[in-house]
Design a binder for these strands. Structure first.
Lengths: 337, 337
DNA sequence: AACATCTTGTCAATCGATTGCAAAAAGTGT
DNA sequence: ACACTTTTTGCAATCGATTGACAAGATGTT
């Protein structure tokens, strides 16, 4: 039960494989007489002919494949961005559709290196990384010599890649400003792992505004090992041990915020009365909670659209003069602060 | 800056491409003299040679690629299963590593069809579907004539595919039994969309035990449009309108349960005093909540391992006499019930 | 009628690695 | 030194689609 290939189909129709190829293609279809083209398309459809994309890739040098690196497949924001990027990439219905090769790094530089090699071996047309850390700089630069590499969500300090980012610093600043306006005097951050620039920038923006508006950030820094609700939950003890006690918390993402809130509830503390909290990302969760979570809305649509455009343009023309962009998030104030 | 290919590498070393190919392969490396082999491997490493897998795929007829269909990339359980399957598939370090092609169907039969065609065009060695609904039966059967198709998590009634499933019916039954033991007399389910066999079976198992233990299931059926917390939240009004009022709820997954709980909290109702709740899947969330959620632990490890084994064996030998298996979940009683 | 132009289709090379077959080289025994 | 086995290497076909070059035929122009 071998698959039907183009040669056989051509034979059956009494034409050359070249004619079949052109008739079925998007861009060269005009080179074959309308009648023949239709006949071939009919027959191909009827016979269930499916072109072999590995052969096509080999010959063309283009795979219509894009590798995408993400640190954690469980993160809603990453997934939203991936979805949206590929929605934009496939929206151009003239171009053949692009298959994403999705891979998870879990922030291991080794895994990243391996995965990038795999991508290149499979001849992806471009690589999008939502997972870059500084440890990956060299690998990504190497890769960029062969295919376009686009960064989204996470930047790498000191390396210039085409990128589509959220202005995390501005986001952090917004939260601090909000706290200032609500009259909080003593505040604290529950910080995500400083591995990725994301969390560093959120912290930075927050601290800058605190300093300028003379809000006191508690000297004790609270870091969660991972940006998850379980880790967030575990930080409450440390938070409560801080003296003087903060009245508002900036959690670096919604999962961390949820963890803190649940731990608080467990102890009978109320939010926002006992402790105000703001998260980051505006995930589904933040809307569900009985005390809806104040948070910073991530500009998923803009980031994804720009990342998609960068990829599309760079694939079409590797020397395209790209423009990296930073999109501003927006504060959403709900009941938790 | 064209990539180095095997021909050039061979030329540089003064050997034939065939020798290079064999030296770098896993299975044929013994055919080349140890000294030559080492020399070639060194040179390949130094030159940063990376074999072109599309060419290799074309020639071999094997892509070392597996297509995986999932209905929703935002679902933690699906993601866990995907991760675990590929961990098992790659564990065999003798075999070359397998690249997953992950695609999301969102339960649209059209999308499923398109994605399967893409998989086949890209010559995947097998397809794993975690997303099958009855609407996909024909498409999957077609696909199965070309490559092994393995089902995980979701079965299709009336079609025989190699599969690795959770005994959802048993899971539902466990919840009902638990309610009976706790003395609940009137209970209700918050059901997921009956599109997938999963939810049907959970409902069935629950109802069967209710009937046999003479617990009353409220005549009104509650269906959530999607198995998400937002949808779960919206069901509370309907739940409270039921008379006589149920004292315990079986939510078909943890997200639905969370939605109900948050809606309850919003109204000042307490869990489990006012309404006991059990979810399904034992997601991270269920552990975080201040009132930890009773739930049914999904046998992720077993399902994934078996799915991985089916795939591995069927790729090695398409006529492998497979055994479909059903793994039993287990009830985890926490504070919510 | 002669010639240019356009359409349609064929031929054959090509992408890069793999592998069956056979030749060359090395090793063994007498 | 010779016959013979075993190891190592090279040759060339192959996987399936794409595409530049070109030929044959159709159409138009003067």
């Amino acid at each position: 039960m071998a698959r039907l290939n183009m040669r056989e189909l051509a034979l059956k129709l009494g034409v050359d494989r070249a004619t079949v190829s052109r008739a079925l293609s998007n861009d060269k279809a005009h080179l074959v007489a309308p009648a023949t083209r239709e006949r071939i398309r009919q027959a191909a459809g009827a016979a269930g002919y499916r072109p072999d994309l590995t052969a096509a890739t080999l010959r063309r040098g283009r795979s219509h494949t894009v590798g995408i690196l993400v640190s954690d497949l469980g993160n809603e924001t990453f997934i939203d961005v991936i979805r949206t990027i590929f929605r934009h990439l496939d929206a151009r219905s003239d171009a053949p559709s692009i298959t994403p090769l999705i891979a998870e790094t879990l922030d291991h530089p080794d895994a990243t290196r391996r995965l990038i090699h795999t991508f290149l071996s499979r001849r992806v047309d471009a690589i999008i990384s939502l997972a870059s850390t500084e440890a990956d700089t060299a690998i990504l630069q190497d890769a960029a010599r062969e295919v376009p590499v686009v960064l989204a969500i996470r930047a790498i300090a000191g390396a210039v890649f085409p990128s589509a980012l959220c202005d995390d610093r501005a986001g952090g600043a917004m939260v601090a400003t909000h706290f200032a306006e609500r009259g909080h005097k003593i505040v604290c951050q529950v910080q995500g792992p400083p591995l990725s620039a994301t969390f560093k920038n959120r912290a930075l923006g927050f601290s800058e505004v605190c300093a300028s508006r003379s809000i006191v950030e508690t000297p004790q820094r609270i870091f969660a090992e991972t940006a998850t609700s379980a880790a967030g939950k575990r930080t409450l003890d440390a938070l409560l041990a801080i003296s003087p006690r903060p009245t508002a918390i900036f959690a670096h993402n919604d999962a961390l915020a949820l963890g803190v809130i649940e731990a608080m509830r467990h102890r009978g503390l109320r939010c926002p009365e006992d402790l105000a909290i703001v998260g980051f990302n505006n995930t589904q969760l933040s809307r569900i909670l009985a005390v809806p979570l104040s948070t910073v809305d991530y500009p998923v649509e803009e980031v994804s659209r720009h990342a998609g455009e960068l990829v599309r343009n760079l694939i079409a023309d590797p020397s395209y003069r790209f423009e990296s962009r930073l999109f501003t998030p927006s504060l959403i104030v709900r009941a938790s602060s």
